[in-house]
Every structure is written in structure tokens, then in C-alpha cells.
Amino acid sequence: MLDRIAASLPSLAPAEQRVARLVLHDPRAFTTLPVRELAARALVSKPTVVRFCRSMGYDGLADFKLKLAGSVSEGVPFIHRSVDSDDKTADVLVKVVDNAVAAFLQYRNAASVQALDRAAEAIAATWRTGRRLEFYGAGNSGIVAQDGQHKFFRLGITSLATSDGHMQVMSATLLGPGDCAVIISNSGRTRDLMDAAGIARKGGATTIAITASGSPLAHSCQIHLAADHPEGYDRYSPMVSRLLHLLIIDVLATRVALRIGEPLQPVLQQMKNNLRAKRYT
């Protein structure tokens, strides 16, 4: 969690940066002090303290303090180990696996349950009302968008995935109230995705961002599912970010399936039966 805050510093507003530095300086004290004292120490207003917590993907100061206290006490560090040119196969294996495991543990401890619930309810509502769910991503995130579409169409939700910027704009234009758009981005700064998110939101659709905290995309969408990690945005082959995005999609799909509940069971069973003919015995 502290790594997330440090990584988000450059993208925060100046006043929120002062709150962030206060957290990084003494996280244990931050969890115990009242908002008035926190604001005084950071030389900001009380609403700024709350706004910082929301910028980091939490529902407010209480939620942020709770997760911060758990992070400090459990102490699950994010150890990002870069692969070097002279690494042997055994070294590469350990580093890649350790990076992925550390990212998953950090997400488990820092994820906003409230944001996941809001996203799951919005998507489940598209099933109840027969509306549409669309996934947008560019480049590597476009592959994650396809995985999202694959997960959710099996739940009986009308869903689509596209990674082409022009198609995203046209598709987002057709969205309206009751529809959902899930926008996936490592950096949260891709222009095509920002355009599509803005169009979908303007049309009345619910926009859900899976991206880095403090990014423009995170601020522009109604629901933000934070995907924070120390992997650079300019990596030629992102690994941790892709796995983290896929994990968030899996958590979200599982939660939506549980919300749909009993009506889903016969459909999944029939699908399983129909697929048996596609396999050799």
C-alpha cells in the first residue's frame, strides 16, 4: 500500500501530495490521528484528506485507515526484481514468479471491497435488465479486455470487447443508462481509452476503470478498481500488470456470478454438457 502511494505521488494534486507524504513519513500515526489533526499536520483542509483517500481508490478516510493499518501490521512488501541480461533460467523463473505473487498479495491487502461491490452490482444489473457490457483496452490491455468478454458472456450477459480506438468510440456512443463499460489500462493515460470512457459516461453508461491510482482514467470513471504495481509503463512486454488485470477480472466475474445466483446454474451446466462433444474421450 505504501508503494502504491509513493508511485502515485507525481500524479496527485499538490495538496494531496502533502497528505501522501504525511502517510509515507509515519503510516502508523496516520491510522490513529483524527482528520482535524491530519489536516493540520499536512497543512491542508479536512476535505482534502478525504479526497486523497478517494484518489487512492478507497471509499473515504475510515476505509483508507483500515487498509493502511492492515498493510502496516501484515507487512507484505512488494519486491519487484528485474530480470537481468545475464540471468540463468532458474533466476528468471524465480524473479517472474516472485513478482507475480507479490503483486497478488499486495492487491489482496489493498483492494477496495466497496469498489468491487459497486462494480459487481452495476454489471449484475446489466444482466437483470438485458443491457450491454463492453470491455475496452489498447495493446496488451486489449487482450485482457477479450478475456473479460470471454468470462462474462458465459454468465449470460451481452458483452463485447474491442481494442481498436475508432471502434471503441463508435461502440461507446451507442451505450446508454443501464449499460456498463469496463476500461482497462496500465498507465491510465491512453487517449483513445479516455475518449471512449468520456463518451460512455456522457451517454449515461456506468464506467469502470481497471487502472493505476491517481491516473486521469481513474479520475474520469465512476468506479475505480485500482491496479497498482511498480512495473514501468514503458516495458516492452508487461508481465505483472497483465496478470494483475486478469486477476481483477476473475474476482469481478466471480462476484457477479454469485450475485446472479441460482438462475445461472442450469445455464452453466447445459454449456458444460454441450462442450463435452468437442472433446476426445
Rank of each mutant, 00 (worst) to 15 (best):
M1P: 00
M1S: 04
L2I: 15
D3L: 14
D3V: 08
A7F: 11
S8P: 05
S11Y: 03
L12V: 10
Q17L: 02
L22A: 01
L24S: 03
R28E: 14
T31Q: 01
P34H: 12
V35G: 01
R36E: 14
A40M: 11
A40K: 12
A40D: 09
L43Y: 06
V44E: 04
V49D: 06
C53H: 04
S55C: 03
D59S: 15
D59P: 00
G60D: 09
G60K: 04
L61D: 10
L61R: 06
A62W: 07
K65N: 10
A69S: 12
S73H: 13
S73M: 14
S73T: 14
S85A: 15
S85I: 14
D86S: 15
D86I: 13
D86P: 02
K88E: 15
T89E: 15
D91A: 10
D91L: 12
V94K: 10
V94D: 12
V97T: 12
A100W: 01
A100Q: 09
A102Y: 09
A102H: 15
A103R: 10
F104Q: 13
A110E: 13
A111H: 11
V113Q: 14
D117E: 15
D117L: 12
E121N: 10
A122H: 04
W127F: 13
T129Q: 12
L133P: 01
L133R: 01
F135E: 08
F135A: 08
Y136I: 02
A138V: 13
A138Q: 03
N140Y: 12
G142W: 13
Q146T: 11
H150G: 04
K151G: 00
F153G: 00
I157E: 00
T158W: 03
T158Y: 08
S159M: 02
L160T: 08
A161N: 06
T162S: 08
S163K: 10
S163Q: 09
D164R: 03
G165E: 09
H166Y: 14
M167I: 11
L175G: 01
P177K: 12
D179Y: 05
C180N: 06
C180W: 07
C180T: 06
N186P: 00
R189N: 09
T190V: 11
T190K: 11
A196S: 11
A196C: 05
I199G: 01
I199P: 02
R201Y: 02
A205M: 04
S213E: 11
C221Y: 03
C221E: 02
I223C: 02
I223F: 02
H224T: 09
H224C: 05
H224P: 01
D228A: 13
Y233T: 08
Y236C: 14
P238F: 09
V240P: 00
R242N: 06
H245T: 03
L246D: 06
L252S: 03
A257D: 06
L258H: 15
I260M: 08
E262W: 05
P263K: 08
L264V: 07
L264S: 06
Q265F: 10
V267I: 14
R276D: 07
Y280D: 12
T281P: 07
T281E: 13
